[in-house]
Design a binder for these strands. Sequence first.
DNA 1: ACCAAGAGTTGAACATGTTCAACTCGCGGA
DNA 2: TCCGCGAGTTGAACATGTTCAACTCTTGGT
Lengths: 227, 227
Amino acid sequence: MTETPATEKARQTRAAILDAALDLFRSHGYDGTTMRAVAQQAGVSAGNAYYYFSSKEHLVQAFYDQLQEAHAAAAAEALQGLEGRTAYSDRLRAVLSAWVDIASEYHEFAGTFFKNAAEPTSPLSPFSEASTPAREAAVQIHRATIDGSDLKVSKALREELPELMWLLQMGVVLFWVHDRSPDQRRTRELVERAVPLIDRLLRLTRVPVVRGVVDDVVGLVRSVKGP
Amino acid sequence: MTETPATEKARQTRAAILDAALDLFRSHGYDGTTMRAVAQQAGVSAGNAYYYFSSKEHLVQAFYDQLQEAHAAAAAEALQGLEGRTAYSDRLRAVLSAWVDIASEYHEFAGTFFKNAAEPTSPLSPFSEASTPAREAAVQIHRATIDGSDLKVSKALREELPELMWLLQMGVVLFWVHDRSPDQRRTRELVERAVPLIDRLLRLTRVPVVRGVVDDVVGLVRSVKGP
DNA sequence: ACCAAGAGTTGAACATGTTCAACTCGCGGA
DNA sequence: TCCGCGAGTTGAACATGTTCAACTCTTGGT
């Protein structure tokens, strides 16, 4: 974690470095952006950037937080735009589509996403301790999506569902990262087609024959989550 | 892709570099191993290593291939050891457990390996073009696991299942990479408990109410797989 | 007003993946 | 045997992430 700057000027310097980094990431990609270029555009020395961000990857962590906030806002707005339609499929589609829209601008340098995801020792992993706030905020979006819907599933499943849907979203991100189609058309298609199926599958969990297995799956998820 | 060397001496030099790299990766990890150290241990110049391997990451590809081969052998042996037991759950458990066994030796360094492997633009990504041979070999293990089992699912699902099970295995790997428990006990527990559930879920796919959705899911998987 | 302490800042130096022009060597053909 | 060509090899140079000792600036206490 980067320390919160003590003074107002320091906060501005930190913001300037972050803005410069995100701007350059967007225009030149992650590898194409040098720390020296970031520092220069921010009007500070190369070394000074390291006073605020202990590594180049930590700049990406700040980017995650920003992306997360943008998605939360866009998702809330999209859900608002549904005006009373409570079908879960509509709400889930809105949330996932909002993410693809928000993130599309950064698709080119998205490789760094999963580079961080797979490094378990790094605090940048979405599963890490350090990412807990951002992750829980993301899970919260799905909790709201579910709570405002007409979805009917068992109590146990409903409790785990927000986190499971976040996991699903990570899967979408994985697909998106590898999606080379223009404007990530294939990812959008995947979302459009997968959402109704997920809705149907969730409704199936209440069918007598299915219910037993689902309960056991939820039980496994629960025991595997905790340490 | 690295070119096949023309002469016998060149082939030996290439092998020496590779051996040195794998040795140092094991003892010092990926980041702790410098190309200069690899070259020195192989008895060549730093620059010469790049004549045979166009980047440090290309050296890791060899490690993956080795791991993949070891798993294929161990999985085959484990399936042999079942001696006629054709229950899919037994067979799947054997294959997944074999992977955890084989990989445990490298768990300490796996984090740094997979960090680099997870980048989609990297040839080390399991989804990349360059990894196609290793990936297909891994899928083939699951195909054999299914073919030798008593599993009864629809024709369409059965065709996609090997690839889906490979995906499941990638999920296990992701969990394993983050597993800090001694001897990766939690991953082993996950496999033990998840396998019977997967078996039950697969058998459920033939139930009339469920069948329709499953067909649609398979259809989606199919259309999303191809470009 | 002054001073000490600590925050903020710098530029140079370092480590390492990678590139490259130049060199050597081995071999097939004349 | 000798030549020339291309594979193989080198060491230095380069690019860039990162570190660090030294410096400056700000602030709070007396």
